[in-house]
Design a protein around this nucleic acid. Sequence first.
DNA 1: CGGACTATTGAAGACGTTCAAGGTATGTGG
DNA 2: CCACATACCTTGAACGTCTTCAATAGTCCG
Lengths: 212, 212
Amino acid sequence: MFSQVVPVESHVHFRPHQFLARENEQPEALFQLQEGWACRYRLLSDGRRQITSLYLPGDYCEPHWLLGKLPTQPVVALTNIRAARMPCRSPSHLPPDRQQQFWKMLGDHIERQSNWLVTLGRKTALERLAHLLVELFERMRHAGLAYGQQCAMPLTQMEIADITGLTPVHVNRTLQTMRAKGLVELQSKWLRIPDLAALRDVAAVTVGESLI
Amino acid sequence: MFSQVVPVESHVHFRPHQFLARENEQPEALFQLQEGWACRYRLLSDGRRQITSLYLPGDYCEPHWLLGKLPTQPVVALTNIRAARMPCRSPSHLPPDRQQQFWKMLGDHIERQSNWLVTLGRKTALERLAHLLVELFERMRHAGLAYGQQCAMPLTQMEIADITGLTPVHVNRTLQTMRAKGLVELQSKWLRIPDLAALRDVAAVTVGESLI
DNA sequence: CGGACTATTGAAGACGTTCAAGGTATGTGG
DNA sequence: CCACATACCTTGAACGTCTTCAATAGTCCG
């Protein structure tokens, strides 16, 4: 699905907590993740942290670097990562079909951010977690990495908290509620969703809203 | 209602609550607001509403329509609006300087959305309102529409609530706290910020973070 | 003047946080 | 293979911020 002709030497590896990009520093390259997860975040002066974007296998990190601004938020590896490096040049240098692809990615990114504004602004803890888990599963499936009703899910509860705007403690309790209701199975870094439609309902997504 | 014998007029007017765009409908054009404010929002099935973007004079509504997707959220006028209409065509049809401008707008839009993810996910009511008022003032000043320490502010407290993810009641109480602390003066649709640096501090924005 | 929207206030309650402790898993080196 | 350290998960109790519901006052505009 994401195959492309990339010379071997343009691959790069990262370990958990390693930076793919830092604030105000020209990124070394645009990365297409082949394996592993990364995130972008902002840290407030008192230690509060909000993760503002998640990068899964197949994703480009980050399309908007091509728009000609320095990154304003750090990007860090959440797991071991293998990625392809691509030059950071203005989209007008790309061939037309790649431009098209680039715009689509950018559109999807804006769309996903808008969805999260709604979730962070208006939804309950249960709805937030449902949104996150549905989105993760559907993105993993789209990348060809879902197996039946399950997929890998390497996030810790603290990272989930920093995505959903909750505390780790409340994430823990809410996940237990979801398990008790049979909405999800989540253990040892694997996620299983017995009834995806039911979980989408809990997530309070509007009809036709794509979470991918 | 009116006869559709409309000249090929590049300007267009809207009244409050009129739609500039509807979900899943090809927008008539890209609008550059000359006067008045608009917003994009999503409505949940139980009536909860989250405003996901705000359009002020000078802003383009909406740059990402050029990316080739139908709008997924309605855009509605908050005040009387006068706007210029521009064709909705792929950015590759634009002259290079206009392309550059288009990418900058898109980058600013993504940046602003990211900032709001942090605010909605992690900030208190006081910090949220401070963020909003600083952003509005700085955007209005950038558009040449600030006069000393003040600018127009046509939003109702209910609209402010739908931007900040709070209830109108709590917005009201928090604004009173801010007035009592001398952080803002806000009355009859005008905003005055006696000490912008102080309000930025309250907003808990990271140093160097642009709210424009 | 009347009607509709907007702002303000009070009281009660819910949802999520905070703090603190204990338990479980995972990996590393001896 | 075990000992140990570290990170992660789980639980309880008390608290606080924000919400909800309801009623009153103010403002705008035909």
